[in-house]
Amino acid sequence: MALSSFIDYLNLERKYSRHTVTAYSRDIESFLDFLDTEYGAMPVTEVSYPLIRSWVVKLGDEGLGNRSVNRKVASLKAYFKFLQKTGVLQQSPLAKHKSLKVRKEIQVPFSGDEIDAVLGELSSSSDFESLRDLAMVSLFYATGMRRSELINLRVKDVDLARRSIKVLGKRNKERIIPLINWLVDILNTYIDQRNQCFGAENDRLLLTNKGENLYDTFVYRTINRYFSKVSQKTKTSPHMLRHTFATHLLNNGADLNGVKELLGHASLASTQVYTHTSMAELSKVYQKAHPRNRSDD
């Protein structure tokens, strides 16, 4: 069965985002290209686990890290599972595959001072670009939305009167996120300026300086540009603002289930990755407050 059928399945039935579908397609094509180069034309029904292992070894030899290799293999595993589901394969050659070990990296969120420094710089100007970038940073930090969700926001999704915003998340699942007054004021100012500059021709909320749709690299570069000035962290991406949103809420006593709903996670397991910093804060409070934790005991 052609790869195109699997892509249609991801788009139409699983309703994955364009970015996710592109990643799946690229990973699987990488493997198919490897097969063509190393073994010639081969039907997918003849692919064996040793062949896949040789691809994995090749990826490692090319300098790809274990995390990236695991992602590629996961894409291939999903493809074989689809072929099994549709009757092309009786059993997936990756049925007993175990992922490569990946060292867990603790992602340190932005500090309050770093957030304040960026917001302070952006608040000092009132031109369209500064207001747009301020709205972008503020939306990430105040709602925890994903980059793709922010890019696809439309003006009609923002309800300033009810202080809420509608977000279209993964697999086209909608969620409503409440807006704090601080963000309402920022969006109100930005939308006024946006409408003066570009009117209603484009209904996307956030636009480029030319009034066009935002795109992934534009958002990444914008966030990285501001935060690399104030932070020594190696990662200054939009996702780090999502991570910061969740961590700051948890550090200030937010319920884990509530944060899960705000982030649009399907399960608590996904949200729990943000709790390590919260545990560090909790430990400090505990060590300081417990009556038995005294140096003279």
Rank of each mutant, 00 (worst) to 15 (best):
D296P: 05
L250S: 03
F128C: 06
N202M: 03
L214C: 09
V285F: 05
V56E: 03
K233N: 08
K166M: 10
K233A: 06
T275I: 06
N172M: 14
N202G: 04
A74H: 01
S4E: 15
K156E: 10
K72R: 15
L131Q: 13
Y226R: 09
V47L: 04
A117E: 11
R204C: 07
T271S: 11
T143W: 02
N11L: 14
K235H: 05
T271D: 11
S148E: 15
S148R: 08
I191R: 09
D113E: 12
L139M: 12
K98I: 01
C197V: 05
D157I: 02
N152F: 01
K260M: 04
Y141I: 06
L139P: 06
S148A: 14
L100Y: 08
S130L: 08
F245N: 06
G40M: 10
P93G: 03
N251S: 03
S138E: 08
S295H: 08
S138I: 03
V184M: 03
E114P: 07
Y226H: 11
L249T: 03
I165W: 00
R221W: 07
A289R: 12
V155D: 07
F80Y: 13
S54I: 01
S126D: 12
K260P: 01
P93W: 00
K260R: 09
D296I: 08
N252K: 03
F34S: 04
R163E: 07
L179P: 00
E13G: 13
T234H: 04
D216C: 11
S237A: 07
Y286G: 06
L89R: 11
T37L: 11
K15G: 15
N209V: 14
T45N: 07
V88E: 15
L35C: 13
D159L: 03
E281Q: 07
P291D: 15
P291F: 10
N181D: 14
R71Q: 03
Y39F: 11
P50E: 07
F245E: 04
T37G: 08
N252I: 00
I177K: 00
S125K: 15
Y79T: 04
G65K: 15
V88A: 15
Q107R: 13
F218M: 15
F245R: 06
T271E: 11
S148N: 13
